[in-house]
Design a protein around this nucleic acid. Structure first.
Lengths: 112, 112
DNA sequence: TCATCACTTGGCAATATAGCCAAATCATAA
DNA sequence: TTATGATTTGGCTATATTGCCAAGTGATGA
C-alpha cells in the first residue's frame, strides 16, 4: 500500500510543536539573546543594555524563549540570570548562514 | 579595551537576516513542506492535497519559503515543482526535537 | 519600615501574519 | 481560439505579535 503523508493527527501535532520553537527564534532581538548567551549567562539588565529596548520588552522576549524551552532562568537575589538550556541551538546558525549565502549569491548573479 | 556586543549596525543586520529565515520556518504548514520536500520535489497540487488548505494558501507559504532562500521552484509546463535549496535545513530538526524533549521531560517531572 | 533596584505583568495601539474567496496568468489540449 | 488545469495574486477579515508605558512584585539596604 502507498502511504501518503498528511498534515493531520500526529504529524500536525509534531509540526506545531516544532513551529513553537522556531517562532521563539524568529525575532532579531531573540536571536541576539541566544547568540549572546552562547558566551555565558547574562542578567536581564545586561541584555537590555545591549539590545537598547525597554526592559519590559526584553523581559517578554526572554519569557518567550523560556516558554519554548530554549532558556533557563536562575534567580539570584534581585537579579535573574538566563542561560541556554540546549546549546545545540547554536548549530542552527551554520545552516541559516548557508541559506543567507545562497541568497546573496543568487541576488548578485541575477541582479534582481 | 572591553568590547561590548550591541544589537546595532552589522550585528543588527545579521540578526534581522537570520530572523527572516527563521520566520519562514516558523509555521506548521511550512515545516511540513520542508519535511516533505526532504523526500524529493513536489508540485503545488501534491502539497495542497497533503496539507488540506486552500491552494492559494499553500502557494503563499511556498512563496515565503522561496523568498527566504529555502526553496527553489522549477516550472515544468503548467506545474511548478519545489525542492529544498539548502538540504542542511534538515539538521535543524534534530536540535528542535532535543528542545522539545527537554520541555517534555520538564513538564512531566514538574507536573506544571 | 521605607526607598530603591531588578524584573515581570497588564494594557493598549501599531503592525504583521494567516487563510479564504475571487480574479488573473500561463501553458496545453481541443 | 476557446476551454481547462495549475498556480499566483489581490483583497479582505480575523488573529497574533511587538513594543512602549505604567503598575505590580520581590529582594536588599538604609
Amino acid at each position: 500500500m502507498k502511504v501518503i503523508r498528511r498534515l493531520t493527527g500526529q504529524t500536525k501535532a509534531q509540526m506545531e510543536a516544532r513551529a513553537t520553537v522556531m517562532k521563539a527564534l524568529a525575532h532579531p532581538s531573540r536571536l541576539f539573546i541566544v547568540d549572546e548567551l552562547s558566551r555565558g549567562e547574562r542578567c536581564v539588565f545586561e541584555l537590555t543594555e545591549m539590545i537598547g529596548a525597554d526592559v519590559s520588552t526584553v523581559s517578554k522576549h526572554l519569557a518567550v524563549l523560556k516558554a519554548a524551552g530554549i532558556l533557563i532562568d536562575d534567580k539570584r537575589g534581585a537579579q535573574v540570570f538566563y542561560r541556554l538550556r540546549v546549546p545545540c541551538i547554536l548549530n542552527f546558525f551554520g545552516c541559516v548562514e548557508a541559506v543567507l549565502e545562497e541568497v546573496g549569491r543568487h541576488n548578485v548573479s541575477e541582479a534582481s
